[in-house]
Design a protein around this nucleic acid. Structure first.
Length: 206
DNA sequence: CGTCAGATGATC
DNA sequence: ATCATCTGACGC
């Protein structure tokens, strides 16, 4: 079985971890998902990060040790999964925005109510639903054995990068940060149009 | 392909 | 009141 990621992997800058999490796998109770899209959040100075409001019951995991889950309810409906990074005391986390289903396809399809394609996990709410997560999973140590785990997977053939999604409330200088990463040539990615290959420089048309 | 509104409930 | 979303409806 693939190596489970340890605290050392997560105890680094959130942007590096977000990029390197592409291709890693999430496992819980018979369901296995390959991570295909992530976003980095870090306060300070990122005003898109929930931690900007300070330590509350909800955001406490963000300020805690790396390798923990931060799960929160979004729009009253969706449970979004984050993985805490950086040193203990810093407020950083990677949002898992999309996954490719690997194992437990039938379980995922059932949890998704058979809606709209058997297991389209191209969005953070769908990922939380596929893993049957709720806010009770906040503070869970994903470097521990059991429960929700993160394991090493096949490295992606290519990466895409772009601005983060759904953060209109943040300052312009933070809205444009290229802190969103996705696997290239992958079906399971949301808002594909706003992404460009990583490592290339945008050029003007001739 | 695109835009748009409603659902829905914890949080501050 | 706000919100790191999703879905179905409708127009081109």
């Amino acid at each position: 079985m693939a190596e489970q990621l340890g605290a050392r992997f997560f105890a680094r800058d959130v942007v590096d971890v977000a990029r390197e999490l592409i291709g890693m796998t999430l496992f819980r109770d018979g369901v296995g998902l390959r991570i295909t899209e992530t976003e980095a959040y870090k306060w300070p100075p990122d005003t898109a990060c929930h931690a900007k409001a300070g330590i509350t019951e909800r955001t406490a995991p963000l300020f805690g040790p790396p390798g923990r889950a931060y799960v929160y309810l979004c729009y009253g409906i969706h449970n979004l999964l984050n993985l805490v990074t950086g040193e203990d005391g810093q407020a950083q986390a990677v949002l898992v925005r999309a996954c490719a289903p690997l194992q437990g396809l039938d379980i995922v399809a059932e949890r998704r109510g058979g809606k709209r394609g058997p297991s389209a996990l191209d969005g953070p709410g769908k990922v939380g639903q596929a893993l049957a997560l709720d806010t009770g999973w906040s503070h869970h140590d994903v470097t521990r054995r059991g429960g929700l785990e993160v394991r090493r997977g096949e490295p992606p053939r290519g990466l895409l990068v772009g601005p983060r999604i759904g953060i209109d409330y943040a300052l312009e200088e933070h809205r444009v940060l290229p802190w969103r990463f996705a696997e290239a040539d992958c079906r399971w990615v949301s808002h594909r149009k706003r992404l460009r290959p990583l490592g290339t420089v945008a050029t003007m048309p001739a």
